[in-house]
Amino acid sequence: MKIKSHPLKSIITKINHGLTIETGPFRFKIQTSDVKVASYFYNLYADFTYFENDDFFDFSVSVNSPNLIRKWILPNVSFSFDGFHPFKPLPKNHSYPLFEWGMNWCIATNAHQYLIIHAAVIEKDNISVILPAPPGSGKSTLCAALVNRGWRLLSDELTLVSVADGLIYPLARPINLKNDSIDIIKKFAPSSYFSPSFFDTHKGTVALMKPPLISIEKIKIPAQPSFIIFPTYSHSSNTILNPLSPTVTFKDMIGNSFNYDVLSLEGFHTMSKLINSTKHFTLQYSSLNEAIELFNSLSKKITCHY
């Protein structure tokens, strides 16, 4: 059943009792009594499937006031995973981003059937591109722009490379936009849904963008990785794509991985396979339209060396 097939009011009630949603390979049971969190969730996850009385979920998470005092005085909220509170509480107006970060944390610290890389990943016409990058490099901006121009979103923050088959499994959760990129993407894709902006978080101002419908319709279809591109936004630069050696790519991918060390030998094999089956580049850009044009012509690069 789709979230949006119910009115907001009934979803708020359901979330208050705990509602199980499926995001790619994982089922999350989510619970909050915070009406605002529930309504942002309702809009951002409108096209996702939920299950009533589900007998199995992977992670049970909630966002609530830690106690009665902090519900009313300097209100704050705490994220809980199976009754365990991994972080100290945050101010109440950050509860929605906390909920999304908490879900990321559950996956990154528990799903070691995947090699997990801090990267966005998108796909179009069987060409899939991994965009790893440290925060501030414009990875999410580029990813949000591409998925508004026909590319399918697999993930914006966590790239899940299966240890078993080397394929990338989609999560298709909302895209986390930061600071200046919020207005850039709002102008670029005015018809998309955006959550309100949350100010003064540890990442600055953040807002979430709802993933396009196509990404959720194809959420069960994994992708064969074809490119790894390290993007850098550079003010008023041309769009420049430079090849990157496999060795440097390998090193930088390890640097962006959450659990390469946990997987040890398995991690090495999965990463080697990933590097060997993809082409690697760095991309410098300032114009989103030019960058998208370049991404649309990537299929021609499949046959080139590197």
């Binding site: 300097l74 991994p86 972080f87 100290k88 509480p89 945050l90 906390l98 970060w101 990321n104 944390w105 990154a108 801090h118 923050e157 966590l158 540890h202 959450f258």
Partner: peptide
């Protein structure tokens, strides 16, 4: 009790 935390900085 009213101090803020920085463990969050490490999560995506």
């Amino acid at each position: 009790y009213f101090k803020q935390d920085d463990t969050l900085k490490q999560i995506p």
